[in-house]
Design a protein around this nucleic acid. Structure first.
Lengths: 201, 201
DNA sequence: GTCTATAGCCAGATAGAC
DNA sequence: GTCTATCTGGCTATAGAC
């Protein structure tokens, strides 16, 4: 995909514009300008705005999916899995900080885009994690907790600080640099916090 | 604001459309149809799309702000404050489930809309909570934790499940009704979880 | 493959009758 | 205050020269 140089430049520019402005707010002219080529070329390579958008969205998913698949499918003790998930995911998003907002925004516009793909790819992994949590609760190895709530907590604390960056920066009265440090520290903080919440003392 | 009946109907329709489609995706024609009046009336009452949008946005903030202000400014022990914040906020959002996504989306489009208002209204309250946490850590009353991280955790776990509903429904393989029950249960779950994470055993 | 010019459409905004 | 009809601008998409 995007083997040609021009095609590559278009995809990069489109990613940039779509991820900041969304599908509706994006302008083909701005994408062309950012790519340093003419508007007509966008249509030559991608036919329509819709198709170009889909290419960008697929690329975004392709960045997130392998890491998520790796973490979620690995067989390992729950605490290790929590550490790997939070650390791995926060690191990944740090390098692509617009991705979660972009994906969430477009999924709210059209909730069905991913449903099947997601279930097929990750449903199994998450259900295993669910069973793992349930079993540990039963064995008295961790505090009683609904597995779904724990999974929600893990994902929420990993991703939300990126999605709500403007709000949280304001709440915490931080500048960009300081906020960045807080995110960095979360790579270990989130797992520590969660494990403290569920482990038997 | 919106004392006239027509004006009121317009604002309701506009809220509906802007909150689901966003500023760029919304169409004045759709708002007029939903309000059961003519497109020209929108301009008669609100001059422009931008101004109508601002009215909707301000109304949205006006729904959230008083509750947040009440919780955040009340003087009470930290554990009570955490219980009140999570329970109060999750209840509130449950009644206006499009609000967080709407606000986050538009704040990412234009990060400066709220900055000053926010700092003036809530900055002080959050800084007090920050100090409260710091003091309790110092006194050995709770486990060592960076106050900023704890505040982020509280907010993330309260709001993210609403923002990422399509993703989390997929991850957890739940239908609307079951997901709704999970959200309901979070009113108490989130506070329990957080308090378990920080309290000395 | 890459450009310029333009077609064609659609949305926001306004004029003007009632 | 409320409507119909219309203007105007901007955007996607394409035709056609090179």
């Amino acid at each position: 995909m995007a083997d040609n140089l021009t095609e590559q430049k278009i995809l990069e520019a489109a990613t940039n514009v779509f991820q900041t402005k969304g599908m509706d707010g994006a302008r083909m002219q701005e994408i062309a300008d950012k790519a340093g080529i003419n508007k007509a070329m966008l249509h030559y390579y991608y036919r329509s705005k819709q198709k170009l958008f889909e290419a960008v969205f697929k690329t975004a998913i392709a960045i997130m999916a392998p890491k998520l698949r790796e973490i979620i499918n690995k067989e390992e003790p729950l605490f290790d899995k929590i550490r790997n998930f939070t650390n791995g995911y926060i690191s990944l998003i740090n390098q692509h900080s617009y991705l979660p907002t972009f994906i969430i925004q477009e999924l709210n516009r059209n909730p069905n885009i991913l449903k099947d793909t997601f279930n097929k790819e990750f449903g199994n992994g998450f259900m295993k994690m669910r069973a793992q949590i349930e079993q540990m609760v039963k064995n008295g190895e961790i505090r009683p907790i609904a597995p779904e709530q724990l999974i929600m907590n893990v994902i929420s604390m990993s991703i939300f600080p990126f999605v709500a960056k403007p709000i949280l920066k304001s709440v915490l009265q931080k500048e960009d640099k300081d906020y960045q440090q807080l995110l960095e520290a979360r790579k270990t903080h989130v797992a520590d916090f969660i494990i403290n919440a569920i482990k038997i003392q």
